[in-house]
């Protein structure tokens, strides 16, 4: 009698897990759709050409706009891009009632930035391994710091952030 009972319980747990996973995917898909509508509306009004691609990466909705002539929507250091991303997250939150962590890219700005930061992180990792001393990097935003942390982790070293935004920076520690 009792083994049967526990079997039933296991089954219920599995169903619940499956459901929440499905919920997450469905929720991220909805996030992507709402965000794409918001962005498309903006492009239409501003009379800008751009194709919007929606995806899911690391449990986040991702949107990328490819237009070729959208430099002004990226801005210096991606300042405009960050602002559009911020507003798009709020638009999703207003529509769904849930906080959004969606990531927006325009004309590959973040992809390129990520590559450059990864290269920088690898170079710093070599330096730290050679000298055995920690190295403090220039202040970076949350996205940039995450790229550095992720890359450093792959080199077998560790890193931490210190200071407060906007002066918060990554320190790469020797092994």
């Amino acid at each position: 009698m009792s083994p049967k009972k526990s079997e039933a319980v296991t089954e219920v747990v599995e169903v619940v897990e499956e459901k929440s996973e499905k919920n997450l995917a469905a929720r991220l898909e909805e996030e992507g759709d709402v965000a794409a509508d918001y962005l498309e509306g903006l492009l239409d009004i501003a009379d800008l050409d751009g194709d919007i691609e929606i995806g899911i990466e690391n449990d986040r909705a991702t949107l990328s706009i490819e237009g070729g002539e959208l430099n002004h929507l990226v801005g210096r250091e991606g300042e405009v891009l960050d602002s559009i991303q911020e507003l798009t997250r709020l638009a999703v939150q207003t529509a769904t009632g849930e906080r959004s962590r969606l990531m927006l890219d325009i004309d590959g700005f973040r992809v390129n930035k990520k590559e450059n930061l990864s290269e920088l992180a690898l170079k710093i990792a070599e330096e730290v391994k050679a000298s055995g001393e920690s190295v403090k990097l220039a202040p970076m935003n949350a996205f940039e710091r995450k790229v550095i942390h992720d890359t450093i982790q792959k080199t077998g070293l560790s890193s931490e952030s210190e200071g407060e935004d906007p002066d918060r920076c990554v320190v790469v520690l020797p092994a």
Binding site: L73, S83, I84, L87, T94
Partner: peptide, 23 residues
Amino acid sequence: GKVIGRNGRTAKALRTVVSAIAG
């Protein structure tokens, strides 16, 4: 409160995007 945001963050984002589009 929503359009101003915490520490004026949303207001700043609105200004940044609008200025960028207007050139």
